[in-house]
Design a protein around this nucleic acid. Structure first.
Length: 256
DNA sequence: ATGGCTCCATACTGGAGA
């Protein structure tokens, strides 16, 4: 079972790139973030023509998440992260595919920090941590996949000293991520490649991709029931070099 | 320290992203 996560930075601007990548990579499950489209503007016909079922939660202008599955039913569980009924941002979608719980998340950026956006990010991480504990308590196979907007460690950023005060790398952010991991989750990519430099995002500015000035911010966290089934992981880095591409690259894992 | 780029809204510019 090949599961991917991809922050597309506008589903409609990215549709040709997305369809080409689906055809070449053939993932079984895909978590998409930053649809940047309202519910009714999701290109469901093109996605279905490519062979994928889809559930999605859109929003005007910003955010938006979707889960795609090839040749499999998606049973939607929730389209809101519990813990704040007033939160109107579309950043969380959870479904069950072949008995695996798939959580697709788009964690807030949080800049500028400190400030209200950073407070929202930390609150969102607390809510995620609470919900993640609930998922773990059921001993189910769970994948928490998505754009975390968290740089977990110095090895995950091209120049750590430049990111010390950034919301993606601040100590509060890293500590909150570690607290989540410490519940018993496995950072899938890092567990297979403890020492490699692996990036999933390159800024549009300053020829960041050409200089490989990247960040690792798209992650898969696996529950204990799944970590033993992890057989492979990678980043489809070449997609970042295509025309009209996202600033993120598709990232994937394989489960036995 | 700054700006560089891309996308959205319904614009002739500003906000957001990371």
């Amino acid at each position: 079972m090949k599961i991917a996560t991809y922050n597309v930075n506008s589903i409609n601007s990215r549709l040709p790139v997305l369809l080409r990548w689906l055809d070449e990579s053939q993932p079984d499950v895909v978590c998409l973030q930053e649809l940047k489209a309202p519910q009714e503007k999701f290109p469901v016909d093109a996605i279905q023509a490519a062979g994928y079922q889809a559930i999605w939660h859109g929003q005007k202008s910003w955010n938006g998440v979707a889960i795609l599955a090839r040749n499999a039913e998606i049973k939607e569980v929730t389209r809101a992260l519990p813990g704040d009924p007033d939160d109107e941002q579309s950043r969380y979608l959870e479904g069950i595919i072949n008995d695996v719980v798939i959580a697709c998340l788009y964690l807030p950026n949080g800049n500028p920090a400190p400030g209200p956006k950073f407070d929202y990010k930390l609150q969102w991480m607390e809510r995620l941590t609470t919900h993640a504990a609930h998922l773990l308590s059921k001993n189910l196979p769970v994948v928490l996949a998505g754009d975390y907007n968290v740089i977990p460690a110095e090895q995950d950023v091209y120049k750590p000293e430049r990111w010390i005060d950034d919301a993606l790398f601040r100590s509060e952010t890293r500590e909150a991520f570690q607290k989540l991991i410490d519940q018993g989750w496995t950072d899938a990519i890092r567990s297979l490649y403890p020492y490699e430099t692996i990036y999933t995002f390159w800024d549009y500015f300053r020829n960041a991709y050409g200089r490989n000035a990247g960040l690792r911010i798209d992650h898969f966290l696996l529950s204990p029931a799944l970590s033993g089934r992890l057989t492979a992981a990678g980043v489809d880095k070449q997609v970042r070099g295509w025309e009209k591409t996202s600033d993120h690259a598709p990232t994937w894992i394989e489960l036995a």
